[in-house]
Design a protein around this nucleic acid. Structure first.
Lengths: 115, 115
DNA sequence: TGCGAAGATTCGAAGAATAGAATATACTAT
DNA sequence: ATAGTATATTCTATTCTTCGAATCTTCGCA
């Protein structure tokens, strides 16, 4: 029972990370806080869209925010989150060739869509 | 560009893990391979549903399978995957109180639905 | 007070993910 | 061949996600 809820919780964290934009945000915050505006600029996002993704990250508590005047600064709630991404990176590298072919596939899908 | 595809790729891996059942499967495979049937029994899943979730894990290459006669044995493609989960566990523990309240929330939602 | 900037929220449409039911496939043993 | 067991696939209804457009809120400043 507890096991089950714990898994649901883990699933929610993964869910929060299951979008390229949100991964980009987390990576952008790796070395410290940034304002919503900075993130939008740096990652070339639409304002509303960025705000929505930030809301997801907030709701799953992967990031925390702090208001300062007109701006809202975001930072990672926990540096261990970066470790999760780093371990994942190692996971990729240990299967480079397969990773590559998967990327290739993604690229092809892309090319397909744009026709 | 490459950055972007890489993030998409990471997102796909997280997506694959973004379901309690699939997390349960990965955890169940932590110490070695198991047949689909064993997983179904151990995790109390419906056959079709289990098969669908396994298909997701396969398609993202988190697991590999091996046929032996009538049965199909699954195992993790890479032990680093377990490390990802382990790091995540550490992540939980470093925020135990918040984790608890989140679990509490999940439980409440649950109670709500079952009314 | 009123205006502009920074963010957040809400809404509707489109697409993706999920569960279960039914069906299909592949093997084994008779 | 036939039946039975293990697993996969397909279909459908439902729910969840995502996006952009529009709207709101809050703060700072003239």
């Amino acid at each position: 029972m507890v096991q089950n809820n714990l898994r649901r919780f883990k699933a929610e964290v993964f869910q929060a990370l299951a979008h390229p934009t949100r991964i980009a945000v987390v990576e952008a915050l790796r070395h410290g806080e940034k304002s919503a505006g900075q993130l939008i600029e740096e990652l070339q996002l639409e304002q509303a869209n960025a705000s929505q993704h930030l809301a997801v990250l907030r709701s799953k508590q992967l990031v925390v925010n702090r208001k300062e005047g007109n701006q809202v600064f975001y930072s990672l709630r926990d540096p261990n989150l970066i470790k999760v991404l780093d371990v994942l990176k190692r996971y990729f590298y240990s299967h480079l060739s397969q990773t590559m072919s998967m990327l290739e596939e993604i690229r092809n899908e892309e090319a397909h869509k744009n026709k």
